[in-house]
């Protein structure tokens, strides 16, 4: 009986350990930091090269698209801090002036490079009615 418990324990420890280890390593790769613009722009250099999800609001009239292409540049702000972003691809319907967005990608010296499909504008409503739009400033 005792040896059986020991066996079960040993197996459990090995399996849990292996899974935990695997999980930990893949978490490190898969993890993205979820930050607000002002947190990152307070010290941009510290965040360069890390995979980020940046939360903020699109600066009014900052969205520009090169005619005939899908290249976009725009600015995202939060609490007074602004970051320049560039993105190639299709933007969601709700991506507009002042809309609340989360952009995925990397921060570089020349601004934020958004990865493909990395622009997520918040669905204004799913179960809830649309919230009031936050002001641009």
């Amino acid at each position: 009986m005792n040896s059986k418990i020991l066996k079960i324990l040993a197996t459990t420890v090995v399996i849990v350990g292996a899974l935990g280890g695997l999980m930990y390593t893949s978490l490190i790769e898969g993890t993205e930091y979820y930050k607000h613009v002002e947190e990152v722009m307070a010290d941009p250099s510290a965040w360069q090269g890390k995979k980020l999800q940046l939360h903020g609001f699109v600066v009014e009239k900052s969205i520009m698209r090169r005619p005939g292409t899908l290249d976009h540049i725009f600015q995202v702000q939060s609490k007074g801090q602004v970051v320049n972003a560039r993105y190639t691809g299709i933007v969601p319907d709700t991506f507009k002036d002042n809309s609340e967005v989360v952009i995925k990608g990397y921060l570089g010296p020349d601004g934020f490079a958004v990865e493909p499909d990395g622009v997520m504008a918040k669905c204004p409503s799913k179960y809830e009615a649309a919230p009031l739009r936050p002001s641009g400033n």
Binding site: S26, G30, E32, Y34
Partner: peptide, 8 residues
Amino acid sequence: RLTVGPPF
């Protein structure tokens, strides 16, 4: 706040 995406 750290997040993991669909790839994970």
